[in-house]
Design a protein around this nucleic acid. Structure first.
Lengths: 151, 151
DNA sequence: AGTGAAATCTAAACCAT
DNA sequence: ATGGTTTAGATTTCACT
């Protein structure tokens, strides 16, 4: 993992569709070398994959919210049940168990305020493990999934 | 935007490096048609771009936190100043202005607890606009940037 | 470790339906 | 609008330094 690898990663987390020729120019290496280093970074898992970034607004997702959840009980089985709940709901785009005021923090994209209310009132609050739900609705996104600070 | 476009988007937000031939097989269209639809989705901005997803742990980012920030004042100029602060700090990977208990919610990746403490105590808290900072440290990530729920 | 060229594969323009 | 063909370009393996 030298400065060339870091430069490759910086370039690829900005634009994952860069060709090896473009990467070669960007980092100062030959295209073949970029290809090989890139393959190694993919094989080792440093590059976990490539994804298209979609525009939520263009696809009708009008509302984003950050939701903090507290559970009633904290046993192994309860946590597993809640994890299954999270996995089953694809409006929930990110979910972290956290240490702090809340137990879980969710990042949620929905099409409308109705869909949001539905998620809160007919999904989350009735869940047997859920004790408290507090949400913040996103008004403006100043930064979204900016790259990792490499170098 | 028909079911084929949605299928393309679903495939590409899961794996952005799929070839048009692979997409053709996945969605049931010819490769040329996939190429054309894909170009249209890129041109219209529905596909905002492609990015490599990096593994934070593999790159030494040992700590992630969600930080809620409240500002002292809420004028145009104050918000702009805070927005500049956010843009300048690349440990802050996402930042949203929100309606709810907090004014801003930040998603932060740092290398260590020291780096985290430094961000809080020598960057955020001394900032003239910042009134309150409350953070939750991520213990376990159950879902991270899952795709938008299409169809 | 690094490069340059050859062979394979991919994308996009073209054309016909 | 869609699918097949072709061409120009990209990737990757190989030979070599």
């Amino acid at each position: 993992m030298d400065r060339f690898d870091l430069a490759l990663l910086r370039a690829l987390q900005t634009d994952g569709s860069m060709t090896n020729a473009a990467l070669a120019e960007a980092v100062g290496l030959s295209a073949s070398q970029c290809s090989r280093r890139r393959a190694a970074l993919e094989a080792s898992g440093v590059i976990a994959g490539y994804r298209a970034r979609l525009d939520p607004a263009a696809l009708g997702f009008g509302l984003r919210a950050i939701i903090r959840v507290n559970l009633r009980t904290h046993g192994q089985e309860q946590e597993a049940a809640f994890a299954r709940f999270l996995a089953e709901h694809d409006q929930i785009r990110a979910a972290h168990s956290v240490s702090g005021d809340a137990d879980y923090i969710l990042d949620v994209h929905v099409r409308s305020l109705e869909a949001f209310a539905d998620l809160i009132h007919t999904r989350l609050l009735p869940h047997p493990q859920v004790a408290q739900v507090r949400s913040e609705i996103v008004l403006r996104t100043l930064k979204d999934d900016a790259g990792l600070p490499l170098g």
